[in-house]
Design a protein around this nucleic acid. Structure first.
Lengths: 247, 247
DNA sequence: AACTATTGTGTCTATAGGACACAAACATAA
DNA sequence: TTATGTTTGTGTCCTATAGACACAATAGTT
């Protein structure tokens, strides 16, 4: 714990870090020591640092990744969101020193950010001193979370769904090369609904943001699908213009 | 100025209050005494009050309106957004007492909200003690604003454009009864582009959220347009489902 | 009564979206 | 080597929606 006098009082940042693996949307979470509950990676904001900067630092500290898709999506400002026993619980479980108790007892608001990262790029996520581990958890089966962190994740997911129409998110969540079925599985997972295989392909190709390689993904007992990669320039242009209509 | 000890330190709320009048999108602004610059209506958040609550209070204090469309859209968290001379300027112009100077010198973040109100319902907007007047200004010709308030308005306008596809905003910005050309003018103003008169009517009616009255707006040297009003129940359902595609 | 401006209504066409059929190809088993 | 199961790649049909545009109806003005 840093010297709290350099921190902006009552303000924190929490990051909902999304990854995609085995056809599941996952969130990077920390398991608190003793308490057993899970928490979003977060941080406190230095008085002399931008809020965005701290969000980037959180992402860097837990994943080692920099300069990746990271969007602020909501401020959670209810007065009782860390009341009434959060500080006491932290203290009782030996997670903070008693001299910091009053710091944690004050009313806290938190700024929610969501990040899209390539699952394979985060091999060994790093827990913080008060957490016993840092792991990917499927968004569909979350355990008990501290405070309003479940609500924060729900809101992040809702935002991601809406943004999907304005930003082809695949670039950030998928590896360099991927197949059309894999891209579709990502969309179906985020949107929580099935899409027609042939219509999906037609529409996705119509954006003209994909480059077809001459490689195929072998190994399955069926026709080997072609590998694609994003045309990053056209991808950026498509985002700026906004994708026409939705899914 | 309230006793600052009851306030959440370094946190404010600013409201971009949109109105529609004479085919212009307007924003309710305060003109600061002496300084001459204009500012968004804002407020400080009590330690024991929700942030949303203070945003509603700001709206109530300046317009007298309660329970109206009010959405949080962004937290502005750059460390230098009120630096370096804001507190000194306030003091030099006699707008604050010197005992509050250090309070205003701290780093401030602000939560942006935007509101949609019926212009005619705000006849005499109320200035606060440090403002000489409170008026509607056209969004297209804003004078010099304090701090990053221009940027906040731009972001609010961008958000409104995006939301327009998910929420038929007319209900909040127009009077009880209105004509189709008036509704179209609102859309054209918010979107900053012309729409085809006949196609607009067709699409708007297809939502089935309007009720046609048997009244007409007389006075023009031309065919008198029919007055419509919103079917509030269907309006709500349409919002929940999300309007199909955009403008 | 003629004129002007704007509203109300309808048509045509191009495009996009949803439902669906069939051939091609990779791995495995016979 | 051949047959089989499974999934990919491609194309068609139909409908809904969107954009461009023509013409009649009507309130006020001259």
């Amino acid at each position: 714990m840093r010297d709290t006098t350099t921190l902006q009082p009552g303000l924190s940042v929490d990051c909902v870090i999304f990854g995609f693996h085995e056809n599941e949307l996952k969130v990077l979470m920390l398991k608190m020591k003793k308490m057993g509950k899970w928490a979003l990676p977060g941080g406190f904001v230095d008085r002399d640092k931008d809020v965005d900067t701290e969000a980037n630092n959180v992402l860097k500290r837990r994943t080692g990744i920099e300069n990746i898709f990271l969007h602020q999506f909501h401020l959670f400002g209810k007065v009782d969101r860390n009341r009434p026993n959060h500080a006491s619980n932290l203290l009782d479980n030996g997670l903070i020193d008693s001299k910091f108790k009053s710091w944690f007892e004050q009313r806290f608001i938190t700024v929610g950010y969501y990040a899209l990262v390539e699952y394979a790029n985060v091999q060994a996520p790093k827990p913080d001193p008060i957490s016993e581990k840092c792991e990917w958890l499927p968004i569909t089966e979350l355990p008990e979370l501290i405070l309003d962190h479940r609500q924060i994740i729900v809101k992040a997911h809702e935002t991601l769904k809406k943004e999907l129409n304005h930003q082809p998110i695949g670039l950030n969540l998928l590896p360099e090369k991927f197949t059309m079925p894999e891209l579709q599985a990502l969309y179906e997972t985020v949107l929580e609904k099935k899409l027609d295989r042939r219509n999906f392909r037609r529409k996705m190709l119509s954006y003209e943001i994909l480059i077809q390689t001459n490689e195929r993904r072998l190994g399955g007992a069926h026709k080997a699908p072609t590998l694609y990669q994003f045309d990053k320039l056209k991808y950026k242009q498509a985002i700026d213009g906004g994708l026409k209509s939705g899914w």
